[in-house]
Nucleic acid binder design. Structure first.
Lengths: 120, 120
DNA sequence: ATTGTTCTACGAATGTTTTCGTATATCTAA
DNA sequence: TTAGATATACGAAAACATTCGTAGAACAAT
């Protein structure tokens, strides 16, 4: 199973949000002053080996894009997370998420509607 | 900040659920056939160094207990998780959690009540 | 065409986590 | 009291993950 590391996840987020990017675009978007350009380059090359991304090499600056879907990866991470951190207790995760985070009225309504749908 | 690794988290889960345990109890509870006893022992000794656990050495088999609270650690992990995996979008996490997991009527009711409380 | 900039490739150092083997101590039961 | 089972301690290997330096290709502008 594909399991991106934390750094790989950050890069994937950029690719998911912005679509295909060059290394430099990713580097600048992440804006991590503590890490050099070639570090990001290397990471993305490794991600290519692992087939998490593909690239278009027709131009001098290669264009990378994610080959794995955001939803799929989020789903897998969430399952693992609930297992290891919440011991499988999804309700607790949800309540704690609701608790930590100051939800707006709109968000609460949205989630309620979602729950109503589930109840049918 | 204390940031347990994935393996450390599994051990902490056991200690949180069962209370103070010996290495063997943890080892048997985890029931990972692919990992030896001394591996778990070593991990727990490292956790002791990191002060994630304390131990009572009065008997031959030492009794370990978690020194860090479940809620605190879950909270920290959740924040980081929402950031790296959901890009800060808590509502999406909640909905995906609700979607993946077949919630019982009771759970849904519980969450709804929780939302009602939040709305005041 | 030479110079400076920007790119890729890639080896290798560093750091962290996980794993286990072996030595040694302690207990238990014949 | 000796043999076997069960503990701990701990060094060190193995497996990953992260970081960067340096070499050289491609390009742009003078």
């Amino acid at each position: 199973m594909i399991k991106p590391t934390e750094s790989e996840m950050e890069i994937l987020q950029v690719l998911w949000n912005k679509g295909p990017c060059t290394v430099r675009e990713v580097y600048e978007t992440l804006d991590k002053k503590d890490v050099g350009y070639t570090t990001i380059l290397k990471l993305m090359q490794i991600m290519l080996e692992k087939r998490m991304v593909s690239r278009d090499t027709s131009a001098k600056s290669h264009l990378y894009k994610a080959t794995i879907g955001k939803e799929k990866i989020q789903h897998e991470f969430l399952d693992r997370f609930i297992e290891t951190v919440y011991n499988g207790n999804t309700s607790r995760l949800i309540m704690q998420a609701l608790g930590n985070h100051k939800a707006s009225k709109e968000e609460i309504e949205l989630i309620k509607q979602y729950l109503d749908n589930l109840q049918e």
